[in-house]
């Protein structure tokens, strides 16, 4: 299958600081790849190079079959970009923003207007179409930003942390839009700091740290690699805790520590087995829940360092 994005050995330095130390990526046409990593890992630099905003120091990158350096104009004609910073004009209305961008994407005025109305409807901004963007909420701005990057139905879309700073409802809205786009055959490269986001959207995740890809795979592969889910149990008192840790053969709990046990879970049936064992010996946990591995766990396992080192 043809690759919509193909990157080999991408390098970039700012002065003495090597930001990208040889990134390899490939994204199949019509799929979504999530670049997952903390601030400063090199995600944005990668996106900026792929969207022709920055020239690489080394390596090759092709987007939609065009080289990002030698054929930058052709690349610009086939991509949409939503950056971390919303790039909308505060003193124009939502409608005017979309028409302007349509004209700059070389649509005829009539076509640009029709497209603007269509996108406003699709992104649930019809009521706000004729209001100045400076009166928009954060979520509305982000939706408009996303709409702008879709003015020409680009085959390849770059979304640089599209949900950072959004409330959960707006985040869900963006996710839904991204799923619709994928269903319509668009190729998406998304960067995120949230494992959950990668999990929700991506068929494929590449974990970036310190300018390198440190792991790659489907979200479930990655999580298996990182470590199992854990059953977290809390107890009413020390006696129950001690009894439970005997029954479940867990590590001896620390005296005076939290009244809690954390046990690795490989399969759903492990949970049932452990709860059965507790019930047989008459120990009742106070509360229980199953915790997923977090981005911190991913990084701890893959790089030996917690996230946010460069924040």
């Amino acid at each position: 299958m043809e690759q919509a994005i193909e990157v080999r050995g991408l390098r970039k330095s700012y002065g003495d600081i090597e930001v990208l130390k040889g990134i390899d990526l490939s994204v199949e046409r019509g799929s979504l790849l999530a670049l997952l990593g903390p601030n400063g890992a090199g995600k944005t630099t990668t996106v900026r190079i792929l969207s022709t905003l920055l020239e690489p120091d080394g390596g090759v990158a092709r987007v939609n079959g065009h080289d990002v350096v030698a054929q930058a104009a052709a690349v610009r004609g086939s991509i949409g970009l939503t950056g971390q910073q919303t790039a909308v004009d505060e003193l124009l209305t939502g409608y005017e923003n979309l028409v302007l961008m349509g004209r700059l994407f070389r649509l005829r005025t009539g076509a640009a207007r029709r497209r603007a109305r269509e996108l406003l409807a699709r992104f649930d901004l019809e009521d706000a179409a004729d209001r100045l963007v400076r009166t928009y909420s954060g979520g509305m701005r982000r939706r408009l930003d996303l709409a702008i990057s879709l003015v020409t139905s680009p085959p390849v879309l770059f979304l640089d942390e599209p949900t950072t700073g959004l409330d959960p409802r707006s985040r869900g809205g963006v996710w839904e839009t991204v799923r619709d786009l994928l269903a319509s055959g668009v190729t998406v490269l998304l960067t995120t700091q949230y494992l959950e986001e990668a999990d929700q959207l991506a068929g494929h995740v590449a974990v970036v740290d310190g300018g390198r890809i440190v792991a790659e795979g489907s979200p479930s592969e990655l999580k298996r690699h990182v470590g199992a889910e854990r059953l977290e149990l809390t107890f009413a008192d020390e006696r129950a805790l001690a009894a439970a840790s005997r029954v479940l053969a867990a590590e001896e709990p620390r005296a005076g520590g939290p009244l809690a046990l954390s046990l690795p879970v490989e399969h759903a049936k492990d949970v049932k087995r452990m709860l059965d064992q507790l019930a047989e010996s008459g120990v009742e946990p106070d509360r229980l829940f199953v915790a997923e591995p977090t981005l911190d766990d991913v990084f701890l396992t893959l790089t030996g360092q917690p996230t946010g080192g460069t924040r």
């Binding site: 969207s51 022709t52 905003l53 104009a73 610009r76 004609g77 991509i79 970009l81 950056g83 910073q85 790039a87 961008m101 700059l104 994407f105 070389r106 702008i148």
Partner: peptide, 8 residues
């Protein structure tokens, strides 16, 4: 930045 990623 957006203009630069477009054919402008």
């Amino acid at each position: 930045e957006r203009f630069r990623s477009m054919p402008v």
